[in-house]
Design a protein around this nucleic acid. Sequence first.
DNA 1: TTTT
DNA 2: TTTT
Lengths: 152, 152, 152, 152
Amino acid sequence: MSGTLNKVMLIGHLGDDVKMHYFEGGNSIGRFPLATNETYVNRQTGERVTNTEWHNIVVRNKAAEVCEKYLSKGDKIYVEGRIKTRQWQGDDGNTRYSTEIQVTDFTFLSTKKESGDNNFSQAGPSSSTENRPAGNNPTPPQDTGEDDDLPF
Amino acid sequence: MSGTLNKVMLIGHLGDDVKMHYFEGGNSIGRFPLATNETYVNRQTGERVTNTEWHNIVVRNKAAEVCEKYLSKGDKIYVEGRIKTRQWQGDDGNTRYSTEIQVTDFTFLSTKKESGDNNFSQAGPSSSTENRPAGNNPTPPQDTGEDDDLPF
Amino acid sequence: MSGTLNKVMLIGHLGDDVKMHYFEGGNSIGRFPLATNETYVNRQTGERVTNTEWHNIVVRNKAAEVCEKYLSKGDKIYVEGRIKTRQWQGDDGNTRYSTEIQVTDFTFLSTKKESGDNNFSQAGPSSSTENRPAGNNPTPPQDTGEDDDLPF
Amino acid sequence: MSGTLNKVMLIGHLGDDVKMHYFEGGNSIGRFPLATNETYVNRQTGERVTNTEWHNIVVRNKAAEVCEKYLSKGDKIYVEGRIKTRQWQGDDGNTRYSTEIQVTDFTFLSTKKESGDNNFSQAGPSSSTENRPAGNNPTPPQDTGEDDDLPF
DNA sequence: TTTT
DNA sequence: TTTT
């Protein structure tokens, strides 16, 4: 089924620290805002304009814990994932939307905290560690919740 | 400035035809919904689940016209672009968000209408035509509005 | 270590059927050539030029078997992977190079043979099945050789 | 025509400075090696293995000059482009191959030399400057050779 | 609202 | 060697 692709690749800076939530059963989720910039020169005025785009990044389980451990506000990261728009009913009865980037791979491009290995993937890292066996994670947390039904 | 990346790559099916808007001065914009699917098997129940993600695709000027000419509801397309979230104040005073994919490149993967050339880029096509000179567009529309200040 | 990215994304047509090799221990490898085209108009002459680029695609184990089963010469496929250049000494003593695309994800865009599921990933499929549990593969072949030391 | 995609995205470190070549007519080309790493743990031995992959990066004209000006050996860069394999006859009569990455976009992730703007694209930068007008390049070199017939 |  |  399918034959479709939903891929996002971002390089940006964390607008805040990683916020973690832990669930019963051992699952966890981390969230942080990521800023990307676009700069251009306005044709009419000749002035330089910079727009910042904010992305809602969502990481899960092991990946979330690694991010929380090594990333701080201001750090630079490469993130790969999928676009997911959640919707719900607002108090006023209108449908509201929130678009998130669900991370599948990332690699740290700068970290304030010390980091040993800055390459990761929910399903095997992107650069060369796609087939990394467990040895890379000395004390791995429960490998659960990847296809969970959490309301996030 | 910058050192950031904001890139989206989608392969999906049009949920509707391309809707065009034309502006004074020759600029135009085309919009259409694009569906991508994700399929997985629920761990607990063993049943197969398909989720559809809908993306708001925005194309401009020449690219928009090419899309409108050749694409129809149901067609399959590869789209490359940037994520852009617009926000505004709702009637209730709350901030509302709408996330769009602003297309920079695309290539048709199926078309119901006849197509001669199914490869395009706002800034040079993706496969090999990145540096395509004007000859490819015998009667090019105004090359304006790429860095415009349109309220979209 | 790392903080690097090595990613290739191709949409193209198979120039030949998938050629399989099976190893003792249950590992397997599939290879096929993939063509991508680039078209541009020569500035001086005004004539349209198409260049074809051939890529050496390498798929392993389950993924290889799925490709062999459903893909034929001429079929269109989306392929994601890493660039890997192998080198060896030629008979003349010179170093020789061969660059391959080692596939991590793919999705069929057309198949002559019948296909049920055309979305796959060595490490979880790209669209939505990244976390697909085993139920998707009723009789999974040995899950070996992902981090093997095979001379390929 | 086409409906194909040939896209490469790399984050890596320069193995050497940018080597420039200038042509009559104002065209130029810059070349440098880029290293990406892949790390995994060998299943049998449990030891950590790092492989380095070297990519032949090719940049043209304005982009080449920007790279030469700001990049040095060891710097980190994000590069986007196309795979191109050139072939020729060796002295021994055998066909020889060399695979290059022809850059269409890049963004600096670190520079030893001082850099004002580290975001660029042959056809408009990737993050937000895709439509950047000329103002960004105070003294632009000749905008030629993008679809040239140079033997590179 | 698409597709298999 | 593919495809339009």
